[in-house]
Amino acid sequence: MTLLRASIAILLPTLLLVVGGTAAGAILTVRMSLHAPGAGAGLFEPGSVSLSSWASMGDAHHRGIVLTTILAGWGVSLLSTAIGALLALLAVPFAGLRFMGVMVLILAPRLSGVIASLFGLQRLLPRGWIGSLIAETWLLVPYSTLILVIALRGIDPHLVPAARGLGASRWQVLRWIIWPLSLPAVALTLQLGWVWGLGAFLGPLFLGGPDQSTLAFEIHHEAFDLGRWPRAAAEGVVLMVLTASAMAAGSWRPRP
């Protein structure tokens, strides 16, 4: 019992710091969204209460942004899962140092840092929704692949030889064995891609055109370029709600 009490005591400050920090941020964002916009150079009117920022959330401009954000979520989700599956299938048959080598190449976009990635992507990709979708996917693919590689390596290594020995072709092995057994991991990468895509920021910022504005991009734009803090905060709340509902929807499983 003393051990339990000690462990609770040890965890409490961390819990307060981590949960408190994140939650306080969310709560203060909600409060900020209820401020009146500042007059002149001011960012917001301290102490004021106003729904003016929320009133603008329903206009055509914001409806378009929310739609783009949701589409980005689905696009990144599908694309990163498909590419991740391809790369995971490529990596898994290797063993030892060769496997490590392929994994380093797969993880390179993550391991090499965001500046190098963005610089190269900006040089290579066309501006527009295709470029920004590819850039977002490119940044996520290492994670998706990692999840799928772990799942594929968890499959009993004898199942594939067993299926091949029973006369199944390579495609049949993929369809009848690998695919059904990796479905839970595929669902997880789809969810991860969805949540990640909803927060799409770097892609639209560096590669998107004026029509590819997502919520995350708009938050940054309102806050830093236009200095309208309450509006940025209201958009932030919308983004948090979208993300939370995506996570809730992704965690739902049909009961057996």
């Binding site: 203060l28 938050i219 996570m247």
Partner: peptide, 26 residues
């Protein structure tokens, strides 16, 4: 508790940044 501790990873980067900026201001 584990879920609560992983919370910062579930909030998208921009929302987290925006929130932390509010905390810093406060």
């Amino acid at each position: 508790v584990l879920g609560a501790l992983l919370m910062p990873a579930t909030v998208s980067g921009v929302a987290l940044g925006l929130g932390l900026l509010q905390v810093a201001h406060a």
